[in-house]
Design a protein around this nucleic acid. Structure first.
Lengths: 205, 205
DNA sequence: CGTGCCTTTGACCATTTGGTAAAATAATGG
DNA sequence: CCATTATTTTACCAAATGGTCAAAGGCACG
């Protein structure tokens, strides 16, 4: 799926150009949305000609799909690392920090994901209903276990996870708004401190 | 600004059709974004012909601008109601509830706003830096005052406000994801309970 | 009921845009 | 160095799209 047109192993130049294209596409897709992005835009940003894009990807949809599929792994990973054997509060806070770092280091990816979801997740609905749901169910059970054992204050584990997503991604997706209000260089240090306080007070027994 | 083409008072039919257009446009803009929406789409949804749209609005941009400007008032209102004279915790919780209700009742507006911000707020940056910033500064000062008086636990008031926005809007903007994970009819009752718990534990002295 | 204005429409355009075809230009392996 | 394959470009196209225009249809009101 999403393999190079020829079914051979990709050459060095293939790899390089594919990466360039995906990077350029991430820029524009995350900023202007799928329909708001033109192939010419991507091509120019990638330093290639439009037909050359098509040589590497089967079309605009294919580029977008490749981006989303790459993104999904990065996106779900941090939640997987939640360790049932760890210290509950520390596990949650570590997850929050991982997720916040993701927002800080990959804001374009965050916005691409956000746009996809806001538009009804037309390309990844299936993944959400299967992979994501399965993962969340599993981790919610772990958290619920901690609460049942009295190691965390009780709270709906699903909405807890939602709130972590929401709060951390906010600093990437709504960066413009945050900046407009704070007029601060970098909101992340304060954000990290605030979120640590928030989840500590929420979950401390 | 955004007035009917003739500078006369709008007739009954003008009002009706303008409203139809804006409603149809809200549907499509919030779902497909600005570039992803076509005039034909709006026209069809509004039950009008394309040239007829142009008769009522100066173009696609004008429709979008009209929507955004309408939206902004609705969006900032709940924050204005924060009353310095009220009981602090109740004021905050009431604000959370108002904001959550907005997400529930106006999800299209929420998504339109989100898309605009994610794309860098090209049309409303100025408003964010002036009106919104001014308002937030003012209300943050009130909250800070409550904390200084020991009536709320200390926390960064700006990030507190951000977290309220983020958490409440999440249920509108990321509705698709929430539904995919929960497979529940309506997430709002549980969300309201969760958020009340969260902010109570965060801010209780 | 007729006149003048508001509203609507059908036909039409220019531009943009995703994508193609084929020729031209590098690479690469023997 | 040649032949073959991989890559890139030039010239195009068909469809979609935002928008125009002039004519036709309604409507209100004297």
């Amino acid at each position: 799926m999403g393999d190079p047109r020829p079914i051979k192993k990709p050459s060095r130049i293939q790899l390089r150009n594919r990466r360039r294209i995906l990077d350029a596409a991430l820029d524009t897709f995350s900023q202007f949305g799928f329909r708001g992005t033109t192939l010419d835009q991507i091509a120019k940003a990638a330093g290639l000609s439009k037909p050359n894009l098509i040589y590497y990807f089967d079309g605009k949809e294919a580029i977008h799909a490749a981006l989303l599929s790459e993104l999904l792994e990065t996106w779900l990973d941090p939640l997987k690392e939640l360790d049932a054997g760890g210290e509950p509060m520390e596990e949650i806070l570590a997850y929050v920090r991982r997720k916040l770092r993701l927002s800080q280091d990959f804001p374009r990816e965050s916005r691409l994901f956000a746009t996809e979801i806001i538009q009804g997740a037309p390309h990844i609905q299936r993944v959400l209903e299967t992979d994501l749901k399965t993962l969340v169910d599993k981790q919610a059970r772990i958290i619920q276990g901690w609460m049942n054992d009295g190691r965390l204050a009780p709270a709906d584990p699903y909405h807890l996870i939602f709130s972590i997503w929401s709060l951390t991604q906010h600093y990437a997706d709504f960066d413009t708004q945050v900046r407009a209000v704070l007029a601060t260089e970098d909101a992340f240090p304060a954000a990290e401190a605030y979120l640590e306080t928030l989840f500590t007070r929420l979950l401390k027994v």
